[in-house]
């Protein structure tokens, strides 16, 4: 839907990017030029000569930002200080013809957790998190098909982030929108993204694939860092009676996690950090760790001097385990071996 072919310049490498409807994360370290790239997509910065960009088959090279009908949310909200909250949100009514009706706006505000009492307040009276919600509402108000988010939820806590995320998922489904967002927080990417474009420190795209594949590979910068960990698809199966716990099913196996509030039989995305997974060659009994998954070793990467990264095949999905060289040698692990993965903690991604 969005196609970008950027030629190289002295300061920024060439980039080719094809983005489909859904959530695409631009994930990479600070200073890698992610904001620069997002602003080039928005038309706020010129593309180098020879570059091409198109959205929904419309060439965009010579279309200025204001005519691209996008929504963009900046890291600090960039709300207009001379207008109150409602006037900020509805700023686009003069300039765009596809703005929300009053009812649509009300339900969007509700979904984003924007309270009616804020609407007449001045921008100066809002907290950082409130400003970010208002900035998102302002971008959604003109119902763009391309939404660009530059660390747009960085000031929100986990619960608020989830609420905003659900509102965005709803919006995305209704409009078949492309949502491109920047983040350098792995949890946020694991929670929000369908696809991930991994940006290296030079600003080039080192990998671009769906979220599960990106997080489960051993040969990219995520696997090298502290954020290494697999993202898995599970289904919400039920709750554990008498304990504040829920069960998820992963193929034929079961995972126990902190209590979930949603409906049964819905998809739940989880992330399991590689450092939270240990490997046993025999099924452990009488352990305090609740989650033990049977798996086969898919591949092994001598991660660094102290650790080995092991990719495990579990029910058609993958799990990463970071173990010491010493453990690896003592257990004499090899590819194709059946092992048991003990999972110390499961992060629910919603």
């Amino acid at each position: 839907m969005l196609h970008l072919q950027r030629t190289a310049t002295a300061s920024h490498p060439a980039i080719e990017l094809h983005i489909n409807p859904g959530f695409t994360a631009l994930f990479g370290p600070s200073g890698a030029g992610k904001t620069h790239l997002l602003e080039q997509i928005a038309g706020l910065r010129p593309l180098p000569t020879g570059s091409t960009i198109s959205f929904a088959d419309n060439p965009w090279q010579h279309i200025p930002c204001e005519q691209r009908h996008i929504g963009m949310v900046f890291q600090h909200g960039e709300l207009f200080p001379h207008l109150n909250v409602l006037d900020n949100i509805c700023f686009a009514w003069r300039f765009r013809d596809k703005c929300m009706s009053k009812q649509q706006l009300q339900s969007t505000l509700h979904a984003l957790g924007i309270q009616e009492t804020w609407l007449n307040a001045s921008i100066q009276s809002l907290s950082g998190g409130q400003r970010q919600r208002v900035a998102i509402a302002r971008a959604l108000y003109s119902q763009p098909q391309l939404l660009l988010l530059d660390e747009a939820v960085s000031a929100l806590d986990a619960a608020a982030r989830l609420q905003v995320y659900r509102a965005l998922v709803e919006y995305q489904k209704r409009h078949q929108a492309c949502i491109v967002f920047i983040s350098h927080i792995a949890d946020e990417v694991a929670q929000f993204a369908d696809d991930v474009a991994l940006i290296d420190s030079n600003g080039a795209i080192s990998a671009h694939a769906n979220i599960f594949e990106i997080f489960n590979r051993l040969d990219n910068s995520i696997a090298d860092g502290q954020d290494a960990g697999a993202v898995l698809r599970t289904r919400h199966q039920g709750s554990v009676v008498g304990y504040q716990l829920s069960t998820l099913c992963l193929g034929k196996q079961q995972i126990i996690c902190p209590a979930l509030t949603g409906h049964f039989d819905t998809n739940v995305r989880i992330r399991i950090a590689a450092r939270d997974v240990s490997i046993c060659v025999e099924k452990p009994t009488q352990s305090s760790i609740l989650n033990v998954l049977q798996a086969t070793i898919d591949s092994i990467d001598p991660h660094n001097d102290s650790h080995v990264m092991v990719r495990l095949h579990v029910e058609e999905q993958f799990l990463l385990a970071r173990i010491t060289h010493k453990s690896f040698d003592e257990l004499t692990l090899h590819v194709g071996q059946t092992v048991f993965a003990q999972v110390k903690s499961v992060a629910l991604m919603g």
Partner: peptide, 24 residues
């Protein structure tokens, strides 16, 4: 950045002058 936000909301440079710069 504030002016960029306005541009992303469909505001051309003349409108940015009238609706942002002047009141601000």
């Amino acid at each position: 950045e504030t002016l960029k936000a306005a541009a992303s909301l469909g505001c051309n440079s003349w409108q940015r002058f009238v609706f942002l710069a002047l009141p601000m």
